[in-house]
Design a protein around this nucleic acid. Structure first.
Lengths: 117, 117
DNA sequence: CTTTAATGTATCGCATGACTATATATAGTC
DNA sequence: GACTATATATAGTCATGCGATACATTAAAG
């Protein structure tokens, strides 16, 4: 319902995916659902967005993957490696700095608006 | 120096420009400088980004403009209209909700990282 | 048993928009 | 005269999120 403007999420999706992967290995579909629930239904990353993103992270050598063909449903498991964990902390810090910057810019405007929970 | 990843700023630039315009009419070059100083040098929007953005806001009827040819340097002044002010408050609220969402997602990761000022 | 929905991965084409480079012109400084 | 700052504008490039589509398996519903 309260989905965000796609343009707003651009540049943060990587970070979200990395942060979900931080809690352990996931395959795509699972990651998609965990992100959805972790964001309380606010972020619903589409398959056409997720898989290219994962492939990108993989070719950037931030995650490693392993196929599981033991069942009829083939699953591709992704896991953060050392570079991925580092990227996550760096990008998280950058994001907080950015958010703080915007917050300051908006401060004069949002003084009249009730703060979010 | 500490410039942000362009992809990160995508989807927020409109909001920043609107918020700068909230303090009164500005022409492009002035707006660019005020945004730069208001963000303590962290945001440096380029001319090739700013002017198309302003034209977009104008064609969306969120700002009105007026040429000033009284001096040798022609300046195009931009001013928020009612729709623009409304858009600003709506987008600001949306941004805070989004930031809150990301903050929650990152919380498990950033527990070990010192909070920004 | 047949149909539908959910699971699971993947690619293609489209649209958006930020960037660099470039163009043009005036005004002030060295 | 040359260079920098001021001031606006457009063209081309690139990254990436999205919808549509494809394909295969499994579970649930009728």
């Amino acid at each position: 319902m309260a989905k965000f403007n796609p343009e707003l999420m651009r540049g943060s999706l990587d970070l979200m995916v990395l942060s979900i992967l931080a809690s352990g290995p996931k395959y795509g579909y699972l990651l998609q659902q965990e992100l959805h629930s972790a964001s309380r239904g606010l972020v619903d990353i589409q398959a056409g967005t997720l898989y290219p993103l994962l492939h990108r992270l993989e070719s950037d050598k931030l995650i490693r993957c392993k196929w599981d063909n033991s069942t009829g449903r083939r699953r591709k498991w992704y896991e953060l490696n050392e570079a991925g964990r580092k990227r996550l902390t760096v990008q998280a810090r950058e994001w907080h700095e950015y958010a703080e910057c915007i917050r300051n810019l908006l401060a004069p405007v949002t003084d009249a608006i009730p703060r979010p929970a």
